[in-house]
Amino acid sequence: MKRLSVRTYHALFVTPALVLSIAIVLLPALLTFGAAFSNWDGVSAPSFAGLNNFSSLFADPVFWTAIANNSLWTVIFLTIPMGIALLAASLLMRRQRASAAFQAIFLLPYVLSPVANAMIWQNIILSPVSGLLGFVSKNVLPLQSPLTQPETALYAVAAVDIWHFWGYLTVVFFAAMRQTPEEQLEAALLENASGWQVFRFVTLPNILPTLGLMLVLVTIFSFLTFDYIYLITQGGPARATEMLSTYAYKFAFTSFQVGKAAAVALVMCFFGLIASVVYVRISRASLEL
């Protein structure tokens, strides 16, 4: 019996992963492209629709609301959790011994499911009846639930998501900061640099690649954000928290306009793609391709 060549073996090794990914991700993704240019309800045969899906989207004010909301969400996430995480991580640098405990605590919300987190916040924090907010409202000063107000709903959901997410950024930044060569930090301290100067001239340049990567990833995920919105407000009130993802989801599974859902998905991916191109370019170097 002739043994298979080493190359054949290695080709077989990569096959299961490749087949799985192609079947679940690549082929359906290609179908999404097709569906975006079709009328399709998901069940009967699709018919070609040209750019109709896109033109009706562009004519829909909700679409533009969603774009605006996603953009606002991106701005919020590129600033607030980033700032908190950078600050927290650099403070942990001075507390190396306690840092493990801090990291574990900060990460707790991140490892819990969005369903649990959303329900906890909805019921025990933000509920005007049973939550902390209701308790304050009844006993200290009257407050309205921010989730019921169109002006504040998006910020309230963002707060829950940031609560869940900032620990991750902190841990990543802290890991990056720890790679800073010890001599550089010592040299800075010998020169009497202030905490801010150490951060600005030593730490920051060292974590710049990681920071850049996180900015890109946060941008991508901000245009895809779904879980917390869908769980807490479903896009309401009055479309105040409608995102491209919830907008598409409703097309697909509420009104069965899969073509339109696909078209929205493509728009979402377009924003993600811009960031992805940057991401792949950054990663390519480190993967020694």
Partner: peptide, 28 residues
């Protein structure tokens, strides 16, 4: 050792950030 390893690596790299919504609806 396999021909096209670079191509496959880049494919999986792109797949790390591919949005679920890009394949969710037809897959369903």
């Amino acid at each position: 050792k396999i021909a096209g390893w670079q191509f496959i690596t880049v494919y999986f790299l792109c797949a790390t950030t591919v949005p679920i919504q890009l394949f969710l609806f037809p897959l369903y």
